[in-house]
Simulated assay, not measured.
Amino acid sequence: MKVLVLHGPNLDRLGKRQPHIYGHQTLADIEENLRRRGEELGLEVESRQSNAESQLIDWAHEAADQHWPVIINPGGLTHTSVALRDALVELNDEGNHGFVEVHLSNIHAREEFRHHSYLSPIARGVIAGLGAHGYVLALEYVAAQVESAAAAGN
């Protein structure tokens, strides 16, 4: 099973941009760690990053069509994008595995405008504030969900 990990705007700057908030790991570090953990869990992890909302929407459509579970850190689009929400909701349709929303920082302990997510109400789960480890926890959750669905014959 392939798991698509999507990284939104500015996440290509990890390790350089505000490391006191987002940590010192680069996006490449996070992706490599996820790939290795995915292998241990029997999952193929494919990571993609874009600063363009439209690209993230296209990838969400692809994941829905291919029935791939998604882990997404939408960055600032979390708080602004109804269009991304509309694309991700399709991942909850029958035959799909949904998505997990991940944030490196605790968005609820930051500026007021970051407290609202358009995506959280439709996500299978939300992990925030655990740094890069949040991605690993999301992947482990997805693995358990895929295994449970397979055992149930779905």
Rank of each mutant, 00 (worst) to 15 (best):
S81Y: 00
A83L: 05
N106S: 00
R36A: 07
D29Y: 14
A143H: 08
E53F: 07
E94H: 08
P19K: 01
L43P: 02
H103T: 02
F113I: 12
R37K: 13
A28C: 01
D58R: 10
H20Q: 15
V142Q: 00
E31P: 02
S120W: 02
L56Q: 07
N73E: 07
E90H: 14
H108P: 02
N51E: 06
Q25R: 13
H103S: 04
H20F: 01
I30N: 08
A109G: 12
A64K: 00
H116W: 14
G75I: 03
R17G: 05
E94S: 09
H97N: 00
V70T: 08
Y118F: 10
H116L: 08
W59K: 03
I57F: 00
I127W: 09
G38Q: 10
E31F: 08
E112H: 01
H115M: 01
I127E: 03
T80N: 06
A109M: 09
S47I: 04
D65F: 10
W68Y: 11
H108S: 08
S120L: 10
I122Y: 13
D93N: 15
E44F: 09
P121V: 02
Y22R: 03
F113K: 06
R36M: 15
G129T: 01
L137F: 03
D58F: 05
W59N: 05
G129M: 13
N106W: 11
E44L: 05
S47M: 12
G129L: 01
E101F: 10
D58N: 06
N106M: 01
Q66G: 03
E62S: 12
E44T: 12
H108E: 07
L41F: 00
A143R: 05
L56I: 05
Q49E: 03
A83E: 06
H115Y: 03
E39G: 02
A109W: 13
E90V: 15
D65Q: 08
S47P: 09
V102C: 13
L43R: 13
A60C: 03
L119G: 00
E44S: 14
L56S: 04
E40F: 07
L130T: 05
I107V: 14
H115Q: 15
Y135E: 03
S54C: 11
A123P: 01
S117M: 09
A123Y: 10
I122H: 08
L104V: 03
P74Q: 10
L130Q: 09
L119R: 10
H133M: 14
A109Q: 07
R37Y: 11
N96L: 04
N106D: 12
E40A: 15
R114V: 02
E53S: 09
R114K: 06
E101G: 02
R35H: 10
N96W: 13
Y22L: 08
V142T: 12
R35F: 01
I57M: 11
W68T: 09
V142D: 12
S120E: 06
E31H: 08
V100G: 00
L84P: 02
W59D: 08
Y118C: 03
H116N: 11
L137A: 11
A143T: 05
P121E: 04
G76N: 06
G125S: 09
A63R: 09
L77H: 06
H67C: 15
N96K: 15
L34R: 10
L130H: 15
